[in-house]
Design a protein around this nucleic acid. Structure first.
Lengths: 206, 206, 206, 206
DNA sequence: TATGAATGAGTTTTCATTCAT
DNA sequence: TATGAATGAAAACTCATTCAT
């Protein structure tokens, strides 16, 4: 019978409730400030119930990180599959990646804080590192293709990927730095794209 | 009398001991992981003594942030004063700012977490915001000058400054994201400079 | 109708499954360390099902204690019935009782801890006390018979029974005190019997 | 200056307050039932203060166990030093050891429960094992001397010591088994001594 | 002024028991 | 009847901050 499958579906649905609640909360406040009780309340369940789905508060964060990383990878994969010219591909990559980064900026911050602690399991770290590697592989492949075609400059594509990643990360953190409640006019994607592609010089000086 | 000035000097010296110790510790571990006891030990004094110089752990962080922001401002000011061509000036600005950001990346992270909390006094926030404004003013002035001279592209110089700041911030956080103990070959300043100035396109496409 | 009896038989059978499982577990780990989930798992049923047969974890322990006490009583009764000479009878009593104590030493420990708590029902305590009384009656009767026949020393047979009980209890706890994994050569029953019967003096000093 | 010594003395005094309070509480209720808050309250201090003197609840128990074991050892040493005939010595040993065991019976029980857990540090176990060894050495030496002089029976003195220890332990636990509030007339030491020395047979049967 | 000592508020996690199917 | 899921109560422990000397 598909009783088993249904059970698992329900279970995944409930895990989803917890994930959604925590995603929301971690998006508003930082990891340490959000208590397990908060998450349970927001997910509409008892605190102990949460522990039936996640073994610890850290695992809740991990599941969010993994899901977010998988999203990034998926986005990159679909961009690559599209098989367009490197320039168009990269424009899309930048746009989609930036939006994902922006949405999860506080979770990324929590990751940086927690990954060194003992509570953060080695296997989680390895899974996230693997996803990270995959991300860089995909990013590098796009860049390499562009280099080969003479569209992008010639640089070690791996370093190139790191550069791109760092730039996007930097942009994604800006909203956290500026005072909440005083929303600065968002930095349009156009300017980001422009800088990345063309730099700030008007002309080939240097 | 001179006695008063001397006392104040001693006081500032002791505050400096605490600042130095905490700068060191916050550079190694994240804000939450460093205890007040750790700082007091590293500063060579009792825990209670620390509270004679700073009203709270948060104020210690604030003082570090303020000092670091003032350093950035000072760097920018000296670059501007040098009165060189915009391109040379900006190269220096990027190099020096990036280094300061890199050195204080963990402190910046703590700032993001804490600035919204009640423990972080409004007046501190205002002081830091003022320093931030000053930084952007200086950055924008450099960029504007370059734009006027036709060396840099024409963009709202304020947005331009934010772009630059975000990019440098992004690069400065990379060491925190990569797995400790597996030191990646650092991303040279040259590539950062190159991207910022010239972008990644080989040629004026788009 | 027979249906009723059969139902009750099934019920008793299931209770037996739980008892057997818990006896096994309480023999390996202490009461607090064994969870209700552990017992249910070992008994091959759901946790909630267990509560259809026992009202609480404490009652599971109680049933074990009662069963064990009844075993002791039964052993004593059979020894007395055998109608052998007091010395032979007592030797058998000591041997069999010691073995039962040894096997249930951890359960006895749990009993001591729990019997004062509110969760341990007064009626259970009374039932166990009654069984205890019965045990002492039987023990005392054996000893008294021996005293009357001049084989055993003359002491208040009730106190005598307590002495015997305490000595056997003491021996039965030794395996719990010694470091697990470093199994000491077990203290043979012979030496226990010898001490109890003849003491440690070679000769009637004092 | 003896400032340092005085500080240490005060510290030891405070540790003593905690030890005394916990000894009292662990004597009344079992280890699990006594909370850290209970101990702190009884010692007249805050919960966190207790953690300045002991690193964990387990360490409080350990210190009690160690102190009690040292007491036993000290008693045995003083008995041996007295250099009296083995019989007199052993009588004293039994009497004093029994009293110490009786006083600490519930703590001993807690030890049995906890020693296998991870929270109970290996070094504590080793220290207690060493004290235990020392106890058996002393006990064995008394018994051996008696055996050599032909006063006590000839048995491997080490096994002999274990026998004695087990018997005394058994007696010491009786008060825990009987229903509190219904104090049975205590089993006099005379009968314990008598059994140990002369056994229960009137005469050399077997 | 300098400081060790004291502390309460707060957090994660476990587990026996009940509920809903 | 059988059971997985839900849960509140409880407990150990930490740490920034204050107190007393």
């Amino acid at each position: 019978m598909n009783n088993m499958a249904q059970k698992e579906a329900v279970r995944q649905f409930k895990k989803g409730l917890i994930s959604d609640a925590s995603r929301q909360l971690f998006g508003e406040r930082c990891y340490e400030e959000v208590t397990v009780q908060d998450i349970a309340d927001a997910a509409g369940m008892g605190k102990a119930t949460l522990y039936q789905y996640f073994e610890s508060k850290e695992e809740v964060l991990f599941s969010l990180l993994a899901s977010y990383s998988r999203d990034v990878t998926r986005v990159l994969e679909s961009c690559c599959d599209a098989n367009q010219d490197p320039y168009t591909t990269l424009k899309k990559v930048i746009s989609l990646t930036y939006r994902l980064y922006l949405k999860n900026n506080r979770i990324f911050l929590a990751y940086i804080s927690l990954k060194r602690t003992a509570a953060f399991k080695r296997e989680w770290l390895e899974e996230l590192n693997a996803l990270r590697e995959r991300k860089f592989d995909l990013l590098a492949s796009v860049l390499e293709k562009g280099s080969e075609q003479g569209v992008f400059i010639q640089v070690d594509s791996r370093r190139f990927a790191r550069v791109l990643n760092n730039i996007l990360r930097g942009f994604s953190l800006e909203p956290l730095e500026t005072r909440q409640g005083e929303p600065i006019e968002a930095l349009g994607e156009d300017i980001i794209q422009s800088i990345i592609f063309k730099g700030i010089l008007t002309d080939g000086e240097d």
